[in-house]
Design a protein around this nucleic acid. Structure first.
Lengths: 201, 201
DNA sequence: ATCGTTACCTACCAAGTGGTAAGGTGTCAA
DNA sequence: TTGACACCTTACCACTTGGTAGGTAACGAT
């Protein structure tokens, strides 16, 4: 529905191209030269803007994180009858965003696979603010506010996992079955998500 | 509990090393030289056995597929009170296998991300026989046998997704929280899986 | 004794990797 | 007018990539 605004600055165009290629082929599979040529500039222009491949990758993750946070913020401006509804609404919003931006999702799943031990350890993790924000939203639900924080955080984490996995699966399943069948599945998912999200601790 | 038998032949040792490295760094991130040195031989010995990197990767996937199928076969030898129970039992067996062999799981998730357009198109997909077998097992359940085959197959697919995602998440969550907390979560998962698997169409 | 095969080696190659060095061009402030 | 800076270029570098060529040692069958 709401298309991602087309990138304007060179930096934004680099990030968009890098995101697509990192998502498709992974960190090692995507080369600096390839990313730069996608934009129509040279590899050295890319290095000029980001310093190194690692930093470019970091910038891409930051970009995704910011967009997710922005989505949550919009979600919080809407009024909901109660806390549980607000939480479910936020998740469904995230879900819609997820299937509209498959590259972001793919990249996040890769991040999960690549940085198993390294990344999530400290607070220095790109998705941490997003996770925290969702956790606080869940904490407003009376059924959850008495629980411990890790319990809420894992609930959030698992729900995000369900969303991501479903989004990725849909792409693969489309290749295996008829589009019509998948469309039906996708239509039913938000309701299923609501059931999962609304379940008690 | 049941440790994977140590690889004996050179070919098996190559496959084991390749599996670990492909799982950890992805197809492009793992190099032939690295894999060979892990075994203590040269890159050319590796190429001698498998022909090319692509074929080596294929051999690794085949290996995983065979092991999964073998697990299912053992599962079918056990008697269960009814079809639904048998299906749940098989899934729980797969689950146990999954957390005991995290490298296999990681690699399968990567495969899901990498081959979106390329691989699953035809029936020439490595996991297809495994998926089919599970689907047929589910078809014995009276509540499912009247459903269409794609419905059963997506049910199976989603359940496997839940297992895989949970296994991967557990690794990441371990880095974020206390081991004790994660252990409690893991203990509860088989029951949760049974509830998911046993649900009606 | 010899042949064919399997398993492995060293040597080598073209292509590509991320990154550095140095320079050119345009813009804008002093 | 000059200087500083952002942006982007070509030229180059050391290193790694997957893969080829050709050879050697071991071994079983004939």
């Amino acid at each position: 529905m709401k298309p991602e605004p087309a990138p304007t600055t060179t930096r934004e165009r680099f990030i968009a191209a890098a995101k697509a290629l990192f998502a498709e082929r992974g960190f090692y599979g995507a080369s600096m030269d390839q990313i730069a040529r996608e934009v129509g500039l040279t590899k050295q222009a890319l290095i000029h803007h980001f310093g190194s491949k690692e930093k470019l990758y970091g910038a891409v993750l930051s970009d995704i994180s910011e967009r997710l946070l922005a989505e949550l913020e919009e979600s919080e401006h809407q009024v909901a009858p109660d806390a549980a509804e607000a939480f479910i609404g936020a998740l469904q919003r995230i879900y819609r965003r997820t299937i509209e931006n498959p590259a972001d999702t793919q990249l996040l799943m890769r991040e999960l696979l690549d940085n198993r031990q390294r990344a999530p350890k400290a607070g220095s993790w790109y998705l941490r603010p997003f996770l925290d924000r969702l956790e606080r939203l869940l904490a407003r639900d009376p059924r959850w506010e008495t629980e411990k924080k890790p319990a809420r955080e894992t609930h959030v984490y698992q729900l995000l996992g369900a969303i991501n996995y479903f989004a990725i699966s849909a792409e693969t399943l489309k290749a295996m079955y008829s589009n019509r069948h998948i469309a039906a599945m996708q239509k039913g998912f938000p309701a299923r998500l609501a059931r999962l999200a609304g379940s008690s601790p």
